[in-house]
Design a binder for these strands. Structure first.
Lengths: 143, 143
DNA sequence: ATGGATGCAAAAGTTTTGCAAAGAA
DNA sequence: TTCTTTGCAAAACTTTTGCATCCAT
């Protein structure tokens, strides 16, 4: 990740912002949690590294990073909000009601659906992040 | 709706519960809001009819009605929770980021997707309620 | 009288905001 | 200095819970 830091600092500077240790830590935490992390989980990770960091900073930073296009957030069907790095390939989540396992599934599965909706309703679906709930194979067989 | 009241009272009585005015009003409000209503919106509707009804009652009643299988709830991508009558045909929502308009779309659009996911991942998707966000036709043309 | 349902108030969980202090530019 | 960023505390918002009371059976 270190190769990104210079770019990142430059990117923020271009917009008149700064790359602070807190911002770096939050971004690292999002990266580390790899795939999906709640604000609270990110807070825990950052807090381990620096005790003084405040929750308000986590929330502000996540909002900031989202506005900068560096992270994206999803709302899960249970209402929780998760963050992950932007720039990764568009993908979506299958979350198991029963055991909570979270599969990533590729964007292309949604192509036909999005295409049909576009044609039928002239509605442009935002597919940056979708989560579907259900029951995974293991839980179906009652393990 | 009045033809349902007897059945409803009987249904609840069979389980050892009662059909109170509050429960009737909440159910009416869910019905009236037709399609989607937040707890707060339901509270407003009920409160208009009876000033003394408390928010706690609204939440308790919605939870109760959901457990009784009479209403279902969805979590929208923005994190809000909406309630609607159960028993209506399965359908989903297209919500516009820009203007908030909410189209209902039929379940069958998702058949292929759900089928593919089932075959590929052996994952049984719960499609009782899905919401997709995006931009509607009007907002695309910048009205 | 028994047990369910309600209103009220308080609590709990999550996210936001005002403000003064600290730190880069 | 000037403007951004942070920490702290408090507020805001949504939802839940304890408890006394009320009500139907």
């Amino acid at each position: 990740m270190s190769h990104n830091e210079l770019d990142l600092a430059a990117l923020l500077h271009n917009e008149g912002y700064r790359l602070t240790p807190q911002r770096q830590m939050v971004l690292d935490a999002v990266c580390e949690a790899d795939g999906h992390a709640t604000a609270e989980q990110i807070y825990e990770l950052v807090h381990q590294k620096s005790e003084t960091v405040n929750r308000a900073t986590i929330y502000r930073t996540l909002k900031f990073l989202r506005e900068m296009g560096l992270v994206v957030s999803t709302t899960l069907p249970d209402g929780g909000v998760e963050y992950e790095l932007a720039g990764s390939k568009p993908h979506h989540h299958l979350v198991c009601h029963a055991c909570g396992i979270d599969y990533e599934i590729p964007d292309k599965l949604f192509f036909d659906l999005v295409q049909t909706i576009s044609e039928t309703y002239d509605f442009r679906v935002d597919t940056t992040h979708l989560s579907l709930y259900g029951i995974c194979a293991e839980c179906q067989s009652g393990v």
